[in-house]
Design a protein around this nucleic acid. Sequence first.
DNA 1: GCTTTGACACTAA
DNA 2: CTTAGTGCCAAAG
Length: 105
Amino acid sequence: MSSLKQSCYSLLQQIPKGKVTTYKSLAKALNSRAYRAIGQIMKRNPNPDLVPCYKVIKSDGSIGGYLGSDIPNIKKKIQLLKKDGIGVEDNKVNLNKYLHGFNKV
DNA sequence: GCTTTGACACTAA
DNA sequence: CTTAGTGCCAAAG
């Protein structure tokens, strides 16, 4: 069973409100470098109801993408983040404040 | 079952 | 700052 997506869900679900995570931190928590695989998993998002994939952003703090690389979707993602109390500036999130770190190894 | 794609990350020029 | 190349993993064709 131990699939990356399974771990991704667990990690995303344990992110407190008002916090976000990056593909890098996520992969690190998974003890892997599947930055891209996670992206695919999110994109292919099997169960968006259980996985707040909008909390996953790039290591630069940029939004990255949402439901594809379409601009309108990116904006939507920003709105969701703001709704969680996360301030977004220049299409980027302040990792210094909102980056949630998992149980590091 | 191999090839291509992608919501990434990092280094070099 | 941008562009190009390399690594890494999973899903789709």
